[in-house]
């Protein structure tokens, strides 16, 4: 295990390096940021001078080296647009994003897993069909559409919940539901199919024959075995939610990292994009690490040599 940890740590470093190279290369494919950074009336000389000052006219490898040197010291440079330290900008937004992601995760998993189990146990019952329809709705509604609908119904028509922005816990409900809907659907469907598969297997039948109480069979024996793909997907979703809340954050005017990142991408604000991608990469690596550890706990057969 210790060896595994060390190896994993070393890999993490490589991942971060890889992410930074890929991001750097792709950012430069999206074009010279000068056009966006300077005002419309800047002349060709203004642009050339600016390019030189920012070092955009150096060879890419030199620019990357400069970036890496700073990044190793935790300095991602100043945002082109905001004139603030890029990493700070990202971290300032992190709490909002984490809050939203956790709420979305909580809502979706706490609804999806029970629905998935119940519809597997009571296959083809009314409950199964209702669960299926809910999952279907969740899957087939684009996030922006769902978000706008929720705002119109609960915010404007019924005046039950705030329509936008950050604030108390009531501000969280609509965006978290919007963000978590797809995860909910996906998790519910996956739980159902995994449970169905496992419930049909011999050892479950054996356990039942031995007189183990039905719910104990389902939760202790079946669910634990069904958990591996479910945990995998939840881990993945957690990552996607953290980075992919762009549309939800835009619709609900939520001041999170997703919105910052997408604005930075649109504005070719390279330092901010780098800092955001770096932060997300760290979090992904951490989540995947936790998921892998969970595997060994859930299924003793899985081991890391």
């Amino acid at each position: 295990m210790k060896k595994h940890l060390i190896r994993r740590f070393f890999q993490t470093f490589l991942v971060l390096l890889g992410v930074s190279i890929v991001t750097f290369a792709i950012l430069h494919l999206t074009g010279d940021p000068t056009a966006l950074l300077l005002p419309q009336e800047a002349t060709a000389e203004d642009r050339a001078r600016f390019r030189h000052e920012m070092g955009f006219d150096d060879p890419l490898i030199v620019q990357y080296g400069r970036f890496l040197k700073g990044a190793l010291r935790g300095d991602f440079g100043l945002s082109f647009r905001h004139n603030q330290p890029a990493l700070q900008l990202v971290w300032d937004r992190m709490p909002a994003t984490v809050q939203l992601t956790l709420a979305a995760m909580l809502i979706s998993v706490s609804i999806a897993v029970p629905i998935g189990i119940l519809s597997a146990v009571k296959r083809n019952s009314l409950l199964d069909h209702v669960g299926m329809v809910i999952a279907l709705l969740g899957q087939s509604m684009p996030v922006f559409w769902l978000g706008i609908m929720l705002i119109l119904v609960f915010g404007v028509k019924l005046r039950l919940l705030p329509a936008f922005g950050m604030g108390g816990i009531d501000h969280l409900i609509l965006p978290a539901l919007t963000l978590g809907m797809f995860t909910m659907a996906r998790t519910a469907r996956l739980t159902r199919s995994e449970m169905l598969e496992i419930l049909g297997q011999e050892y479950i039948r054996t356990a039942r024959a031995k007189g183990v109480p039905p719910w104990s069979v389902i939760l202790r024996h079946a669910l634990k075995n069904a958990a591996i793909p479910i945990v995998t997907v939840i881990g993945l979703e957690m990552g996607t939610l953290l980075g992919g809340a762009i549309i939800t954050e835009t619709i609900f005017a939520w001041p999170g990292v997703g919105r910052l990142t997408v604005q930075a991408i649109y504005n070719r604000d390279f330092p901010v994009v780098q800092a955001a991608v770096f932060t997300l990469a760290c979090i992904f690596v951490l989540i995947n690490f936790v998921v892998d550890i969970l595997y060994t706990y859930l299924d003793p057969r899985v081991r890391y040599e």
Binding site: R7, Q11, L14, V15, G18, V19, V22, T23, I26, L27, L29, T30, G31, L236, G239, T240, G243, G244, I246, T261, V262, I265, Y266, V273, A276, V277, L280, A281, F284, V285, N288
Partner: peptide, 26 residues
């Protein structure tokens, strides 16, 4: 396993909008 799973980490950490814009730009 290590290589592919770390590639997956890189892929996940990388915003897909950025990739879209880059692909479209090029």
């Amino acid at each position: 396993d290590d290589i592919f799973m770390r590639l997956a980490d890189i892929q996940l950490a990388f915003p897909f909008i950025l990739l879209s814009i880059a692909v479209v730009a090029v």
